[in-house]
Computed example of a mutant assay.
Amino acid sequence: MHERLQQDDTAPPRALAAYLLGVIDFDELSALQRRLRYDVSGDRDTAAAIFCEIEPGITIGREGSAAHIRPSAESLAARRWPVRWVGRGGGAVLHQVGQVVCFPVFPLDALNLSPARYLSELQAVCLDLCRDYGIAGTLDAERPGVRANGRLIAHIGVAVRDWVSSYGMVLNVNPDLGPFRDVKCNGDPVPMTSLQRESPLRVRVSGVRQKLLELIAARFGFARVSVFHHHPAALPRATRHALPHAS
């Protein structure tokens, strides 16, 4: 895997605004992502990342198909699983409580990252996280994503517009795995697994979310992180953290 990104010593320390939210509606998440993408597009010295859980539903990316969803429209309605077609890479993903969703909004040009390198770095972050929980993760041979014991544990699908990233990673922490039999995530006929199922350690969404933030900050070279626990519309107050990262 690539070494962590290095920053020019003469440049100001990179800062990241991290939104650590609870369970939110996908439409609300999309609105927040659009707002942050607008802000970062106007100021390439800024960067943001959203960490949250999403209310149950299905999103389908550019490589996805409705054929990957087994339940009928009536069954989906009964389960209250809306289906949304979104402009990211990757296929279908089932969103459940018990996942950690990480949507970085990064100015890739300012970070000297090509889209391909950025995707590779996200996968490296996920492999590092799996390793921290005693799991030997492997890359998905077919498309971006990470597997554990042959089953997908993290879906990775991004979009890049004007060199600003959106979408990102959906990582299974401890969701109910039964419903994943009904959705071929990324077209895979084998249901997704989770950190809880594969790890010998106790895992919690809050702990995984914090660990993921630390890994993101370290790998992408953010020396300062401002953490928000509310949607920006709620006038959050930032908490300053200094996160160590490899030199």
Rank of each mutant, 00 (worst) to 15 (best):
A47W: 01
V170A: 15
A124D: 15
C185M: 11
R62Y: 11
N149D: 14
L16R: 02
I54K: 07
A15Y: 01
A242C: 11
V205E: 04
W81A: 04
A242G: 10
P179T: 04
C102T: 08
L195N: 07
Y38H: 15
G221Y: 00
V125I: 14
I54P: 08
V160T: 03
T46D: 15
V101F: 09
V146H: 05
I54Y: 11
P189H: 14
Q99H: 06
A47I: 01
L29V: 06
A148E: 10
C130L: 14
Q6I: 13
L113K: 01
G207Y: 01
S166H: 04
F220N: 03
R204N: 07
F106C: 02
S199G: 14
D39A: 15
D140S: 13
V203H: 11
L21K: 10
Y133G: 14
M192V: 07
D25N: 10
D128K: 14
A11T: 01
P82L: 04
R224Q: 11
L177Y: 10
P232C: 12
D140A: 07
W85K: 07
P82T: 03
G187L: 15
F220P: 00
G91E: 12
K211M: 04
A73I: 06
R44K: 11
V160K: 00
N149G: 08
G87K: 11
E63A: 15
L16T: 04
Q7G: 11
W163M: 01
L122S: 00
P82H: 05
E53F: 06
V190Y: 09
A77P: 04
V203T: 08
V205K: 02
M169D: 00
